[in-house]
Each structure stands twice: as structure tokens, then as C-alpha cells.
Design a binder for these strands. Structure first.
Lengths: 212, 212
DNA sequence: GACAAGATATGATCAAGATCATATTTTATT
DNA sequence: AATAAAATATGATCTTGATCATATCTTGTC
């Protein structure tokens, strides 16, 4: 068996490094496979030995940095009301995500939305169910601490998790898509408020969370 | 002024017709400008006399059929609780939209989401504010007929409209992106139920609306 | 009817993603 | 070392969206 496993993975890592460098400087669309491979000291043909497509490269590149992200830390963090609302707030506090046109690591769920490619849909599904499970766990825990405005039932909670995710993703998608910032912000905060309401947080408490 | 205005618009219409035919048979991605122009009896270069890009063609093509759609009729229809819930149900009843991979006329709001192109964002903004205004009008009218679970205040209603849109768009986006149909359907119905709840429709009533 | 001028169409050309037959490199075996 | 076999890289080639200089067509004017 010629070539140690290490060689291929090292080459791949070199491509990923080149890509990360160029993507962060110029953005995904404006970087060509040729440029990436040139920086990685290879011809463009070799690219496809390591990645199925430019999109696949993008996915791996995103996944690579995802673990380091703040959202990942939040998702893995301990259970608490504060945490859940932080998470919501974090997803909604999107000046970060909306302003820089470059897809940050948190963007998997949102940027890949609507893709028709099977590969991306699978990636999306993974993000989705991870988030959903996390929300369910949080809601269950929350239900034991305080009275929630809905039944503490597995199916009901699953549905609430679905609704929360749909609202968040929709709000972010709208915010990203609208050209103006004012309306974007209002969509985000209105959605955030509604979610907190759904979780039985009073209007006053909610206001404190969003501005404090 | 050589050439009557009619000539250009006729040629453009011919291209649009070719495109509609091919798109509906093969889908957007799998049809090339060359194929479209061949069907329209021209060379591919001429395409750009009439459209700025393939995406622009897609937009016009969608807009062209949008007026005929059921959603357009609903949006223009008379004000009533039944109408508003129908509208929500219609947007959520997406077997149509989800099953056929082809973008139906209802899909503008959803398919263009996340686009970074200014042109598309503007198109999206138009769809968004039309929907939002429509929702606001419906909610105002609804508030006069029955007690809603929120203040009958202009700003509050605007926020509710924002939340409803975000939920709908998010749910549809998720449903479209998930590979499996079961979870897609659950996201859609859960969201629908939540929206009806927000509008003060009781759980029982909601159940009837969704299954009756 | 010929002509000028503007509007349209043509086809060569480019850029970039993707594919593939072929060449090269690397390792295990002898 | 030489060799076989597998892995990897090369570069030509294809496809498709987009651009552009040029050619062709249409119409009002003379």
C-alpha cells in the first residue's frame, strides 16, 4: 500500500489552509479553485482528488472552524434558563452575522438553507437535529424548574423546539435578506421576544434580557 | 429610432417562453442559456441583450407566473379570519412546494432567501413588505372582531406580523432543506399551530382547521 | 430605393468548475 | 537497487455563464 495515510491528509490540510486564507480575505465566490491550488503548490486538477466540489470544500472549511465558535460553546454549555435565552439572544444578535457578508462559522444552519444538493441537505439535517435536541433538553429542564405555558409532554416540547427553530431561522434569513438594517433588527428582536414569551418569560423580564 | 419597442419585447417573451418550458421540464440548474436560446432560435450571446444574467431570467420567470398563483389570489382576497388562517394553512401546506423540486410561483419569498445579490434582495424586500402589510391589515381587522391575545396597537401588530412571517419562512425553509418528509411535515404543522395560537384560535379550533 | 444611425444578433473568446486519461511519485517486495 | 502496484498529480479538455467587437438588420429620412 504505497503512500502513508498521512500524505493525503496533509495535502488536504494544505488545501484547507489555503482556502481558509483566501476565503477570509476575498470571500467564497471570488476565490477560484485555481487560486487555492496555486497557493497550495498544486495544479487545479488535483483538487478533485481531495474534495468532491468547491461546495464540499466550503462545508469542510466551515465545519473545521465550527467547534471553536461561541455558539458551539453555548450549545455544549450547562443547562439553565439563562443559557437558553442567551442562546436565543446570541442567534438573534446578528449584527455579526448580518454585517460581515462572509459566512461565519455559525452560519451553517442559515447559509445552506434552501440548497437542493443532497450533500448540503444532509449537513443541514445534522445541524438541525443537534439544535433541536439541545432545545428539547433545555425545555425539559426548564419545565421542571418553572411552570411553562404548555404541557410538559415529550411531543409538545418537540413541537415547541421545532417552532423556536423555525422562528429563529426564519428571522435570521429575513434579516440577512433585507437590504435595510432597521427592519432586520426589528424582525430579530420581535422574534426573540415572542420566543421568550413562549417560554413563559414575562414581558418585563424579556425586556431586561434583551437590553441588559 | 429603428426597431419598434415591440420587437425587443417579443424576443424577450420568446426567451421567457423557452425558459419556462425548459425549466418546468428539467429544472433551473440543468438548463443552460445555450439550450434556452437554441429553442428560441438565437445564439446564446443574444441572451444578454435581454437579461442581465441567468438569475435575472429566473426572477422574471417567477414574477411572470406569480400573479396567477393561488397565494396571490389569497393575498388580494377579502379580509376574514378564515382568510388569514387559510393563508397560513396555504403557506404551510407545502407538499406542493416541497415535493416538486421546481420552484413554484409561491416560492419567491423562500427561494431567494440568503441571496447576496442586491437585485434579488430588493425583490425579496418587495415580497416581504407586501406580505407584512397584508398580515398587519388582517390582524387589525381581526382585532376588531375578536379579542386577540395581544394589544391592538399598531407597533405590537407590526411585531406580530414580523414574527408570523419569520415563523412561516423559517418553517418552509427547514422543510425544504430537510431530506426526510416526516420531520418536514411536523415542523410545518407545529409552526402553523403556533401561529393560530398566537392569533387566539383555540387548540381545538386549530385542530379542525388543519385537518378539516 | 439608398443611406445613416441606432438596435439586435452573432460568434469568438474568456473564466471557472469539473472530468479524465495519462504521467509521476511513493512504498512494499524481491 | 529494480520492480510492481497503488496513490496521487498533471494538464488537456469539456461545460457553461458571461463579455465584447463586429456584423446584420430595421426604420425614418432624403
Amino acid at each position: 500500500m504505497p503512500y502513508p495515510q498521512s500524505h493525503k491528509s496533509k495535502t488536504k490540510a494544505r488545501i484547507l489552509a489555503s482556502a481558509a486564507e483566501l476565503f477570509s480575505r476575498k470571500g467564497f465566490q471570488k476565490v477560484s479553485i485555481g487560486q487555492i491550488m496555486k497557493l497550495a503548490k498544486m495544479t487545479h486538477g488535483a483538487f478533485y482528488t481531495h474534495f468532491a466540489s468547491k461546495e464540499a470544500l466550503y462545508n469542510e472549511s466551515v465545519r473545521l472552524t465550527l467547534d471553536k465558535s461561541q455558539t458551539a460553546r453555548l450549545v455544549k454549555g450547562p443547562l439553565s434558563v439563562q443559557h437558553l435565552t442567551d442562546l436565543v439572544a446570541n442567534y438573534c444578535n446578528l449584527q455579526e452575522l448580518v454585517n460581515k457578508h462572509e459566512p461565519g462559522p455559525e452560519a451553517v444552519l442559515f447559509n445552506e438553507i434552501g440548497s437542493e444538493k443532497e450533500e448540503i441537505r444532509t449537513l443541514f439535517e445534522a445541524s438541525y437535529s443537534r439544535m433541536k435536541k439541545m432545545l428539547e433538553t433545555r425545555l425539559m429542564a426548564l419545565g421542571k424548574l418553572k411552570k411553562l405555558p404548555f404541557a410538559n409532554d415529550r411531543n409538545v416540547i418537540a413541537d415547541k423546539a421545532r417552532v423556536i427553530l423555525a422562528s429563529l431561522i426564519g428571522a435570521v434569513a429575513i434579516a440577512k435578506s433585507l437590504p435595510g438594517e432597521a427592519e432586520s433588527k426589528q424582525v430579530l428582536t420581535a422574534t426573540q421576544r415572542q420566543i421568550l414569551l413562549m417560554m413563559g418569560v414575562s414581558e418585563n423580564e424579556a425586556e431586561n434580557m434583551l437590553h441588559g
